[in-house]
Amino acid sequence: MNANAFDRYLERASAVHRLDPRVKVIVTLAFIVAVALLPDGTWAAYGAAALLIAATTAAARLSPGLVLRRSLLGLPFLLAAVTVLFTVPGRALWEGPWGLVVTDGGLVRFSSITLRSLLSLGAAVLLTATTRFPDVLHALRHLRVPAVLVAIIAFMYRYLFVLVDEAQRLLRARAARSARLPDARGGGSLAWRAAVVGHMAGQLFVRSLDRSERVYHAMQARGYRGELLTLAPHVMRRRDWLALMIGGMAIATVTLVGRIA
């Protein structure tokens, strides 16, 4: 595989894609905070928030199915929340075995957690799909995230692909050497298999360490002396301010609907 296969950015000629990344980062974060603050059972507000996601998806020319599919990624985690079905007091809706009772309060709470989580994930999916990661990093730097942290994340993003390819080669080399009879599980004991992975991790570590040294040399060779300078690639235009305003107003509306309902 080429590590590029997991790039989640989707190139489209849309107004959302062209927006200043700072606007998109701020609006996304504000949206997620606003959704987290919505009380349980404020269905109208969840609906309004979902509408906002749907409208942005359309404006970004992304397929709603794709955004939904990616938003479902966090769903396995929902199982951890299943217990609230039984533990929140309320009117009994359904009696299960072992004295477990699903209450209406529990159902409301569980559905609310599910919806809020889906909505937040939807916003994050939209940010990632419409904004290239280096632009997100520029936005973070402009939004006063410490430069060192942003730089470390930028380097990580760059070498992620290189090292994943390297890990891939290690796995492939293992696969090439592990012949397996049709009926045997093969590959030795569980502990042995874990140890093989451990050795691969160790090898990858040593190689990565050497690489970091070479990268450091390459930086020095081009005049790096501890301070990382970058171009300022983004300028807020009128439409960016407009989008920021509209986004802010839409999020305020969602919050308002949640309070009134």
């Binding site: 930028a154 990268v215 005049g223």
Partner: peptide, 26 residues
Amino acid sequence: LVFQNPDDQLFSPTVLEDVAFGPLHQ
């Protein structure tokens, strides 16, 4: 100085950032 492995030489996420790195630090 151009290193043998371009993955060591190109350490920025985008091409422009990398080509601009030297002159910026000058």
